[in-house]
Write a protein that binds this DNA or RNA. Structure first.
Lengths: 219, 219
DNA sequence: CGAGCCATCTACCATATGGTAGACAGGCGC
DNA sequence: GCGCCTGTCTACCATATGGTAGATGGCTCG
């Protein structure tokens, strides 16, 4: 039985994770708006209007606008973690693993573009949203960094500073997926076809950048 | 003699470009806040407080908050254009030119980080801010795309789709320069030393990605 | 010296916004 | 059938926000 928003665990709707019913609808609507319009440009009244309820209903399930943001951030971090973990467990060697991760993020973007949009918005918002999000991804990032370093040591990948490499990959992936205005200006409408092209180009670039050519890194 | 904000050319302070005096101070403060906190999170009262004036003074020089944003966008587009044009006119061949452009953007970031911060904010804001900004950079982007294609045709750079390559480079550069929270989470504080490391890593990555190894592209 | 202009301010406006308190209808259990 | 709980609503609050109108002091010019 669902329980309404109240003092308690900060940032959480009461009771079980609200994926269904009104609380679930509120989360989805908030995600879409926070990702698309921005957190500060989203009012509770506007959000409520889109859901055909009053803002008091939102405040019944989430004690404040900030608590709603925290719940949305947690949900996105969870979805992204799940996707990244699944792909990390499947692929084997250096480049294969990087490729698997990038492909899985693009698949997530195809069916849930607002998740990547929210990722980019947390970067802009700064603490505590970004801190919460990055903390949730922390273990994965640490694992990714260690993995990259090991692969570079083994000669499977070109030598780079692993953590800066992760920032570069993150920036490029998020930009290719969410910089809608820049993409449009360069002739790329946000279509499924364009997504395929962008994924191909990005993978080509990353592969050229990461896979050493010659004897020790022949592709 | 300076002229106050009024109906007229939208988005412009009256009279000559206000780089000095109160209007200039307003522009700088607005740039810093729009880039750092975001346009929607910046109130005219807060901006005025920082300048030790009243918001009516801001509205004397710029007819509206949106007009102020337009003026800030124009100024940033101008600064970035100047920097990009200068570097494009100096370097010669394929990779050398790309490197020169990236280095010049990093130099701009070292002394005027808020300019790059505003670039990223315009991407988030969408039209009309992003349209205005991208229109101002349009000729440069067209030239860059044509240049990249010619260098690929000549075998100086690996074959990629030029416009998507520009999006990728843009995303990576802006991310490496402005994703402060992600950088911090990975151990990179926004220091001058870190900027040097980031520039080196980024240039290494781009070089590996763009410069073909082997007979036709030996570096 | 007085008039006019410029740049800043005070006072005020209308609307937006996040949030609180309690009313109310429906459903469920005793 | 009644009492209680849940979930939604109305009414209201205090503050924030972008903007307008006119006051005011200082400066310049005739």
């Amino acid at each position: 039985m669902s329980v309404p928003g109240d003092a308690g665990a900060a940032g959480e709707a009461r009771g079980p994770a609200p994926q269904v019913g009104t609380a679930g609808r509120i989360l989805q609507a908030a995600l879409a708006s926070f990702a698309g319009r921005g957190y500060d440009s989203t009012s509770l009244d506007a959000l409520a209007a889109g859901l055909d309820v009053r803002k008091q209903t939102i405040l019944y399930w989430f004690p404040s606008k900030e608590a709603l943001l925290e719940a949305v951030v947690d949900q996105c971090a969870s979805e992204l973690s799940t996707v990244l973990e699944a792909s990390l467990h499947r692929a084997g060697d250096g480049w294969g693993k990087v490729e698997a991760v990038v492909r899985s993020v693009f698949r997530l973007a195809a069916r849930r573009p607002e998740v990547l949009g929210l990722v980019r918005e947390t970067g802009r918002l700064g603490p505590p949203a970004s801190t919460r999000f990055l903390a949730a991804l922390g273990p994965l990032v640490d694992g990714a960094s260690a993995f990259l370093e090991a692969e570079m040591d083994a000669g499977h990948l070109r030598r780079h500073e692993p953590r800066l490499l992760l920032v570069a990959i993150y920036s490029t992936v998020i930009g290719m997926l969410t910089e809608v205005e820049v993409l449009r200006a360069l002739g790329e409408e946000p279509t499924a076809r364009s997504l395929v092209r962008r994924r191909r180009e990005l993978l080509d670039l990353l592969r050229s950048a990461l896979v050493a050519s010659g004897p020790e890194g022949e592709p």
